[in-house]
Amino acid sequence: MYSFEIVRPKSVADAVSALGEEEAQALGGGQTLIPSLKQRLAAPAVLVSLASIDEIKGVSSSGGAVTIGGGTPHGTVARDVAASYPALAALAGNIGDPAVRSRGTVGGSLANNDPAACYPAAALASGATIVTSNREIAADDFFEGLFTTALEDGEIITAVKFRIPEKAAYIKFEQPASRFALVGVFVAKFADGVRVAVTGASEDGVFRWTEAEAALSGDFSAAALDGLAVGADGLMTDLHGSAAYRAHLIGVLTKRAVTQAG
């Protein structure tokens, strides 16, 4: 690692001010950033740890939505939303491994927007609202491509508001070494329609499969997806799977998610 200093602000305001310094970088749970620093893929002068900011931690639910502080670790989400939003709890409880879930945070995951991360699929399928240090961003406007989001420099995710669907499920085809999604599909059925978000597959990161949404909004059953397929164009090819294989998985996993959601 290159050398840097760490500061640990106790409030969002202090963190935003620390991030205004030259070459400052936010540190969430560090489960992606620290390995990246070891590979010298980043060279911040100052890391601004968000882990001491109590105001961005915790889970609360009201009025058909669950609000999760941006600094809440996956393990806490898995436990604390199990009753209010079980599909989201299950997703959080299968990220990485228990030690990763002790540190990694929902805000960090969304801000990083790894194309194979789980949380972006939950946020997009739930029509979530990403609350930051200075505004609210709809999930539909938040994800802008590979490791790219609508966040501006120094902007911190303070909370994520997930609308709670009537039915939902997330199915991930795990890359067995990393536990990231080779492909993951989140299906959420709301009174006003169904949303389907796919992670792990596209070169542009998480996306909505709108044809499946239209079909499922009319008939929420796996059979409604018969004959529908995502094209391989624009999907990722790597040593774990070709674009065509990923395209096939999207169809299979969406059906499984619908069946599991019931």
Binding site: I6, R8, S49, P73, A99, V100, S102, R103
Partner: peptide, 19 residues
């Protein structure tokens, strides 16, 4: 390298001493 930090199971190689 797993250790417990305030009771939570974490990877000692993926957390800074300053944290």
């Amino acid at each position: 390298c797993n250790i417990h930090v305030n009771g939570a199971n974490v990877k000692g190689c993926t957390i800074f001493a300053a944290e």
